[in-house]
Design a protein around this nucleic acid. Structure first.
Lengths: 124, 124
DNA sequence: CAAGTGTACTACTCGATATAGTGCACTTAG
DNA sequence: CTAAGTGCACTATATCGAGTAGTACACTTG
């Protein structure tokens, strides 16, 4: 089940993308399996079909899912690898923020500790 | 001189904040010194006075500058420390992105390397 | 007093987000 | 073959934040 927070500042269509990617990575949506249809998700999430379609279009552009008009949308065989490729672009964001933090006088150790803490926390 | 890119996706008022903080940290705007007036910056940067005011209001909220109606805006004595305090909140953003990267299968080492590279690069 | 300062206020444009509704071509199950 | 379901395209509308534009007021300074 996808968790969507309509009150969040994060656009709904981005939340849907994140949730679907999450389910793919967790194996809930295995490769080659069929995703919920646009209209089905629209009903269960009480979200306009066009918003769902925007999410699916973006997931298609990223090579994570493959739509088959008349049949449904299917998880790409190499979906997990494509998700990883797209995530790597976020490293650029990390780099930008790090530059700002450095300029503001934040030590490298403080940032490294923050990053490490995330992995330590979820490694148990 | 403040560098503003009106074509950037980053809001102009945020760019102004960043540039002023940068100049304060670099000592170009020393503590207790007076900043360019709203109208002066408006003319030199060809930006609406309200946009400049929005930046100054935010800088005031952060305790980085102190406005003196009728006189001008002055750099706070402890401006650098206030900038550092506000920057620390960006660590939370680092943490959020790190969690997403972890979920996408990005190794901790890749992120740590990205962060370290920024500091190495500017240490020369 | 006059000029310059920060501040407050309203009105407008613009793009992104999201909703709403309709229609079309396709695939699939009966 | 038929009907249902599918992805997809299209237009229209509403909302919100960012930014622009202009005016006015109270204050400080020379």
């Amino acid at each position: 089940m996808l968790m969507i927070d309509k009150l969040s500042s994060k656009p709904v269509y981005e939340q849907i993308i994140d949730e679907i990617e999450k389910n793919i990575l967790l194996g809930i949506y295995p490769p080659e399996s069929v995703l919920p249809s646009l209209r089905e998700l629209s009903v269960t999430l009480s979200i306009n079909p066009n918003t769902i379609q925007k999410s699916y279009t973006e997931l298609t552009r990223r090579g994570i899912i493959k739509p088959s008009p008349g049949s449904g949308c299917y998880v790409s065989p190499n979906a997990k690898e494509m998700i990883r490729q797209n995530a790597l672009q976020k490293l650029e964001l990390i780099r930008t923020i790090t530059e700002e933090l450095q300029l503001a006088g934040i030590s490298k150790e403080e940032i490294l500790a923050t990053v490490s803490a995330v992995y330590v926390h979820n490694d148990k």
